[in-house]
């Protein structure tokens, strides 16, 4: 029961965040690149004011899978690196924390681009 409830939270919050993105698309007609940028900035902001972890505690994947989570880890990485390395952490923290995701995206994109060809839309 507890597991079911936690998954329900993930579903509801994840869905709501995505619906917010769709609402932005419908009302302002902005492109997907701008949507992604907006949500990354929201993530950075949530982490900067230190509320991201509170949401993450019960929303789990619901807030971490949306690109908001990517923004939050960038900011979290920068902040924690500042604590250990000082000024250098400002430069190294963000990308270090998100290196896995970025490298994976680049690597898979490269491999699949070599394998596949674009398909015409139906």
């Amino acid at each position: 029961m507890e597991i079911f409830l936690s998954y329900l939270w993930v579903f509801l919050i994840g869905g709501l965040v995505c619906m917010l993105g769709e609402l932005l698309i419908i009302t302002t007609n902005i492109t997907s690149a701008r949507i992604l940028v907006t949500f990354v900035l929201i993530g950075v902001f949530l982490e900067a004011i230190d509320v991201f972890d509170y949401i993450s505690d019960f929303a789990k994947a619901g807030i971490n899978v949306p690109i908001i989570g990517f923004g939050a880890s960038l900011a979290k990485g920068a902040i924690s690196a500042v604590k250990t390395h000082g000024l250098l952490g400002v430069f190294t923290g963000g990308l270090t924390a998100t290196a896995g995701g970025i490298a994976a995206a680049i690597f898979f994109a490269f491999i699949f681009a070599l394998i596949f060809k674009s398909h015409t839309k139906k």
Partner: peptide, 24 residues
Amino acid sequence: AGGGSIVPITGFSNSITSPSIEFK
């Protein structure tokens, strides 16, 4: 799905892979 598949990290992955394939 529109925003449903753009906002998650999968949308980020899609936006990197799609131009790579397109401009192959």
